[in-house]
């Protein structure tokens, strides 16, 4: 196997999905001749034709609404929303239609729609190109929300998402598109789509991360080891539903939990995870669950985004907090 980028792993995942199921069709802006603004769909229209890889008019609600109609007709649409911030015009269709048509029709109509969304910051982009909207989608019953931390999961999970009979919001951490790793295209034996994975084993503290921060969390585990702290990194992978069973098993060993995400803190996934783990593990927790997140501000201009994004040092500082080592918030109220 040769190492491929996450973008290429996603592209090969789409290619395999198109080969495996003639009802799979791709819709999105600039995904055809251009191959997508991140080149994820490079070459697919050439090889599968314009009826299966469709450049659409520039309208996100339209993309999702047309996908609903295609699903009614028995297709398995894969929509690309060009950037996270442009998913908001599609939220209406996602929340009022895609997520609940199966429920509305008592199971008669399935919506096997995959919505690919490049998300997150760190690429020096203009406004609306660095959002982390996962909490909006995770709050919507009927949607599965997943994200990948590396090329292998990118490939495997995307194919699993497309094969899934539920609608899946597939969040792609865009600043990791160029991350390289070896990718095995064998699906048999792959971890199910809705399961978290322990990617680094440890014993002192559980660090839960997903998407772009999986790399950061791995780096934190290496750095902490040098200081004598053993971090167990859990890549959540599925944000809705959350795999709290895997998290609980880990926290019952480590007794401490840090959750990291780029998205704003209030009402975010970190809050749900902290509550869920506390409900299950109150008896063993030795410190309050700590969150390392973006701030409750709109995403800032590129020149200061490094201050918004949780990085290695902020993650390690939170780890210090839960293991009782000196940290930046010493003397502050935990409620702040």
């Amino acid at each position: 196997m040769t190492a491929t980028t996450m973008a290429a792993a996603l592209g090969s995942g789409l290619r395999r999905a198109l080969e495996d199921d003639p009802r799979v069709v791709l819709l999105g802006e600039d995904i055809g001749r251009l191959g997508g603004v991140f080149r994820v769909t490079d070459g697919l229209q050439r090889d599968f034709g314009a009826d299966r890889v469709m450049d659409t008019p520039l309208a996100e609600s339209g993309i999702l609404g047309v996908a609903v109609g295609l699903a009614y007709r028995g297709f398995r649409p894969v929509c690309e929303i060009q950037f996270d911030g442009f998913s908001y015009p599609a939220v209406d269709e996602l929340v009022t239609q895609v997520s609940r048509l199966h429920y509305r029709t008592g199971g008669a109509i399935r919506m096997p729609i995959t919505v690919r969304i490049p998300y997150g910051g760190g690429i020096g982009a203009v406004e609306h190109h660095s959002e982390s909207p996962e909490a909006y989608f995770a709050h919507t019953p009927g949607l599965r929300v997943v994200t990948c931390g590396g090329p292998q999961d990118a490939h495997t999970m995307l194919r699993q998402a497309i094969a899934c009979d539920d609608p899946v919001v597939f969040l792609e951490p865009k600043r990791r598109y160029w991350l390289k790793d070896e990718v095995d295209e064998e699906l048999d034996g792959a971890l199910p789509l809705d399961r978290a994975r322990v990617v680094v084993e440890g014993s002192d503290v559980t660090l839960a991360a997903y998407g772009p921060l999986v790399v950061t969390a791995r780096d934190a585990a290496i750095a902490a080891r040098d200081e004598g702290v053993s971090i167990e990194v859990v890549d959540l992978r599925s944000l809705a539903p959350l795999d709290l069973d895997t998290l609980e098993r880990s926290v019952r060993r480590t007794h401490r939990l840090v959750v990291a995400h780029e998205a704003q803190r209030s009402g975010g996934l970190g809050a749900e995870i902290a509550a869920g783990v506390t409900e299950r593990c109150f008896d063993v927790l030795q410190a309050p669950v700590a969150r390392v997140t973006g701030f409750d501000a709109p995403y800032p201009p590129a020149k200061v985004e490094e201050h918004f994004l949780p990085d290695l040092d902020r993650v390690l500082d939170a780890v210090d907090r839960v293991v009782g080592r000196p940290h930046a918030l010493a003397g502050w109220s935990a409620a702040s």
Partner: peptide
């Protein structure tokens, strides 16, 4: 949801064409 069905009809029709 007022008007949403026009998109669904269009998608279904597109599927018929395909």
């Amino acid at each position: 949801m007022i008007g949403a069905q026009t998109l669904h009809a269009t998608g279904y029709a597109l599927g018929c064409r395909i």
